[in-house]
């Protein structure tokens, strides 16, 4: 298989988080990463950074090698990176591009819809409504529907959700 270097992608990343340029691939992030340990290196934060530096967009966002969604965002890598590379924020950016490529956990789409409709990521069940009442807790109100709709439309989020 040949890997294509996407120069635009590479440039975008290096300007988005300049700290990327400081990576010297020491592997402090991967060596200490709990997910890397549990997946025996299938997931590897160092390789994601390496692919960003090299501009291997397809590898990251289509082939999901490694799969950035496996990051638990525990931030351990950010704490220990000797060069101050902002790994988790860079991964967020990779995830944004994965979404554009149609690669994301399906559960998120439903959550996104729920927030768009009700403002909350988790639907309210009857049992919980009853429970809240017995606990003497205030009734949960949904947020202003039109306000959320306006904002999500204006930022292009709704369009993005529809396109994927």
């Amino acid at each position: 298989m040949t890997l294509k270097i996407d120069f635009g992608f590479r440039k975008q990343f290096k300007t988005y988080k300049f700290s990327l340029n400081y990576c010297y691939q020491c592997g402090t992030c991967s060596g200490g990463c709990p997910v890397a340990k549990l997946t025996n290196g299938d997931y590897n934060p160092r390789k994601i950074i390496e692919a960003c530096i090299l501009g291997l967009k397809e590898k990251l966002t289509t082939l999901l090698e490694p799969n950035v969604w496996q990051c638990s965002t525990c931030q351990k890598c950010v704490e220990y990176c000797p060069q101050g590379v902002e790994l988790t924020e860079i991964f967020d950016h990779v995830k944004n591009l994965c979404v554009e490529a149609g690669n994301y956990p399906q559960a998120y789409k439903a959550q996104g819809e729920a927030i768009r409709e009700k403002g909350s990521a988790i639907p309210m069940s009857n049992a919980i409504i009853k429970r809240r009442e017995r606990l003497g807790l205030p009734v949960m109100k949904t947020a202003s529907h039109s306000e959320i709709q306006t904002l999500l439309r204006e930022t292009g989020f709704i369009k993005k959700m529809e396109s994927i």
Binding site: G27, G31, G32, G41, R46
Partner: peptide
């Protein structure tokens, strides 16, 4: 081994130290 030594942990077996790293 090319790869920084990421972590040194006390081990729970007979050997007193455990190290974590990636052989990059």
């Amino acid at each position: 081994v090319k790869g920084a030594l990421s972590m040194v942990q006390p081990s729970n077996k007979n050997s007193p130290v455990k190290i974590l790293a990636e052989n990059t």
